[in-house]
């Protein structure tokens, strides 16, 4: 899996994160792991739920926005948080995503809760590639 780093000096009340992936699929999977890390201690989420997610977007960066927004949406609708994902991104515009996500239902007795992610913002939102590696900056409203 790729890497992510939370940033301290961007949008003080919210949560900014830089994500790197070895390829596009890895970037998307790593961004999902970073999002889970914002909301819960991932080690305290049982791996009891698997879901398949499919999305389409006209631009690659919007696909990333929709992907993370979908995970935030499911956290509220179903109380499910996903700490691991296998992602496949394809197409050349429109772009398509299919993912298998793994996690569990939020249980305050077992899960160490952190911040309730409200949304992905467009503030400093960026998805770029250099020499095959992919990077994204994401600011999450919490």
């Amino acid at each position: 899996m790729g890497r992510y780093e939370f940033l301290e000096e961007v949008a003080l009340a919210d949560c900014a994160v830089d994500v790197e992936g070895n390829d596009l699929d890895d970037l998307f999977a790593t961004a999902a792991a970073a999002l889970a890390d914002v909301m819960v201690d991932p080690a305290t989420v049982p791996s009891t739920v698997e879901r398949t997610i499919a999305l389409t977007a006209p631009q690659l960066d919007l696909l990333l926005y929709d992907w993370l927004s979908e995970l935030i949406y499911r956290k509220d609708r179903d109380r499910e948080v996903f700490t691991r994902a296998e992602v496949r991104v394809s197409g050349a515009g429109p772009f398509e995503l299919t993912a298998r996500v793994h996690g569990g239902v939020l249980d305050p007795e077992r899960t160490a809760l952190r911040a309730d992610a409200k949304a992905v913002t467009f503030h400093q939102f960026a998805l770029t590639s250099t020499d095959g590696a992919w990077r994204a900056r994401i600011v999450i409203d919490i």
Binding site: P58, L62, Y65, D66, S69, I72, Y73, D76, R77, K118, A119, V120, T121, F122, D141
Partner: peptide
């Protein structure tokens, strides 16, 4: 709560386009 968060998410995405 999530209701407002989703409305803002939906329309930010629309306005962006």
């Amino acid at each position: 709560r999530g209701f407002g968060h989703q409305i803002a998410t939906d329309y930010l995405r629309i306005f962006d386009q």
